[in-house]
């Protein structure tokens, strides 16, 4: 097991521990094999360091975090970011549209990956 910066993360490296956002929200589970998509997702969440092991194969049964949880997390995150501006109609509209767009972005990426 070794800790590396996300810059050094490469496809097929195996996570040696769960990756959490702000020590709470699970982004990727221990045992998942890294790929371009999930490295990009970790980057977008501001993760800078991860722990990986040298086993080239993911553990049996390991799955990425639930996509629904990711969508909920997007909503939570935007609520948090806009928190201090509650009540402002312009902020509310920006937040409403931004939430839709980010969710659509994840769905579009999933559709591409499924092809």
């Amino acid at each position: 097991m070794r800790e590396i910066t996300l810059v050094d993360a490469r496809s097929d490296m195996i996570l040696a521990s769960d990756v959490l956002h702000d020590h709470q929200k699970l982004l990727l589970r221990k045992g998942v094999a890294l790929n371009d998509k999930n490295i990009k997702i970790l980057k977008s969440w501001g993760i800078t360091r991860i722990t990986v092991n040298s086993d080239p194969h993911p553990e049996d049964g390991a799955t990425p975090a639930d996509p629904v949880a990711l969508i909920e997390a997007i909503e939570d995150r935007l609520n948090h970011k806009f928190g201090e501006t509650d009540g402002n109609e312009i902020h509310k509209e920006i937040q409403r549209v931004a939430t839709q767009i980010i969710i659509a972005r994840y769905h579009a990426q999933e559709a591409i990956d499924a092809q």
């Binding site: 501001g46 970011k81 201090e84 501006t85 402002n88 312009i90 902020h91 920006i94 931004a98």
Partner: peptide, 20 residues
């Protein structure tokens, strides 16, 4: 700046969106 933070395009170095 506010639009980009709302759409999470890159990061300006924090996790807050400045008030308009």
């Amino acid at each position: 700046d506010i639009f980009c933070r709302a759409l999470e395009i890159g990061s300006g170095g924090d996790h807050r969106i400045p008030a308009l």
